Amino acid sequence: MNIFYVILSIFILYTSIIQCNNITSDISNERAANYCYFCSNCPNPFDPSSAFVTEVYSKTGWCAMMTTDDSTYASYTRGIPPGGVCTVNGCSWKTMSGVYTRVCCCNQNLCNGASEPTTTLGPIGNTCYSCSTCPLPFDQLSSYVSEIYSATGWCAKKSLSNAVNAVVTRGAAELNLCISSGCTWRIIAEVNTLICCCRDYKCNTGVSTSKSTIALLSTALIITIISRKSF
């Protein structure tokens, strides 16, 4: 009789363990069974019925939207984030493969279909070049140039002149100094200062020529060539 109860107890214990493992497996599968929208050239505004949009399975349960554009009407790519990129819901600026990227993470089924996420955790962190009297032309390998962490995510270049040979300082932008990429004249400590802002990884090496400037120079060159042919 004692042997019978022992065998019965072992059978009940074994059955309970199997059922417990099955329940745990089902719960894990349910949490990981998360589908995300995927598109490398997503329509803007986003349309899940578009031919460019598919659905992909996420083993981690995380979905993401990513862009390098800081404008209000930024166009996002959507899909499964690389491992370790997403840890909390929301948006933040991260440096990915040397490119400053806005990453929006979420962990609900097909959650990365918003046209513009409202939850923002950034911009957070960046690396900028720093020098008080920068070499001219700029040389990032110079002993006068170092790298500095930017808590605001912005890098800046400051000068009192827009001349080609003007003295320039570079560094991390302080809070509220930069609100958009590009150059503008600002009154800093009662001094009219040219401030150039950017938020790519170590982006404050120089200022790219604007499209309008390029167009103006191109037009001037064409006019010059036509004038020479006429005489």
Results as ranks from 00 to 15, higher is better:
Pro43Phe: 03
Phe38Lys: 12
Val6Ile: 08
Cys105Leu: 12
Cys36Lys: 05
Arg78Asp: 05
Gln140His: 11
Gly182Gln: 05
Cys36Ile: 06
Val168Ser: 14
Ile124Phe: 10
Ala166Tyr: 06
Ala163Pro: 02
Gln108Asn: 12
Arg102Asn: 12
Cys104Gly: 09
Gly206Gln: 13
Leu136Ile: 11
Ser9Arg: 04
Cys203Met: 00
Ile179Gln: 14
Cys86Trp: 04
Val6Lys: 13
Leu13Lys: 06
Cys42Phe: 06
Ala189His: 10
Asn165Gln: 10
Leu160Gly: 04
Ile12His: 01
Pro43His: 06
Leu13Gln: 06
Ser132Asp: 13
Cys178Leu: 05
Pro81Tyr: 02
Leu175Val: 12
Cys197Ser: 09
Trp154Asp: 12
Asn204Glu: 05
Ile7Phe: 04
Ser130Pro: 00
Asp139Asn: 15
Gly83Ser: 13
Ser212Asp: 11
Pro81Gly: 07
Thr54Lys: 13
Ala156Lys: 12
Ser50Ala: 14
Trp93Glu: 01
Val191Ser: 05
Lys158Gly: 01
Ser50Val: 11
Asn109Ser: 08
Cys20Ala: 14
Arg199Thr: 01
Ala64Ile: 12
Trp62Asp: 10
Leu13Asn: 04
Tyr57Pro: 01
Ser181Asp: 04
Asp139Thr: 01
Ser25Leu: 15
Thr209Glu: 13
Asp70Lys: 02
Ser212Met: 08
Tyr144Phe: 05
Leu121Thr: 02
Cys104Leu: 04
Leu221Arg: 11
Trp185Leu: 08
Arg186Asn: 01
Ser92Met: 13
Ser58Gln: 04
Val167Gln: 09
Arg228Asp: 05
Phe231Ala: 03
Ile179Pro: 00
Cys131Asp: 08
Asn162Ile: 12
Thr224His: 05
Val167Trp: 09
Leu177Val: 14
Ser25Ile: 02
Ala163Trp: 07
Thr224Leu: 07
Ser212Cys: 06
Leu8Glu: 02
Phe138Ala: 04
Thr77His: 08
Tyr5Trp: 07
Thr119His: 01
Ala189Val: 03
Asn21Thr: 04
Leu136Trp: 01
Ala156Cys: 11
Lys202Asp: 00
Thr15Trp: 06
Gly171Glu: 04
Thr193Met: 01
Ala220Phe: 11
Cys134Phe: 08
Leu177Ala: 03
Ser28Gln: 09
Cys198His: 00
Phe38His: 12
Ser161Phe: 12
Leu217Ala: 15
Met96Tyr: 07
Lys211Met: 12
Met96Glu: 12
Thr67Ser: 15
Cys203Asp: 00
Ala32Val: 04
Thr224Lys: 09
Arg31Gly: 03
Gly153Thr: 02
Val164Ala: 14
Lys211Gly: 15
Leu136Thr: 13
Val164His: 13
Gly122Cys: 03
Val207Pro: 03
Leu216Phe: 06
Cys128Val: 01
Pro82Gly: 11
Arg102Tyr: 09
Thr133Ile: 09
Ile223Asn: 15
Tyr100Ile: 02
Cys36Gln: 05
Met1Glu: 08
Tyr37Val: 10
Thr120Phe: 11
Trp185His: 03
Arg102Gln: 15
Thr24Ile: 07
Ile18Asp: 04
Met1Gln: 05
Asn112Pro: 05
Leu110Gly: 01
Thr72Leu: 14
Pro81His: 09
Cys198Pro: 00
Asp70Met: 02
Cys131Asn: 10
Glu174Gln: 15
Val99Trp: 00
Tyr14Leu: 07
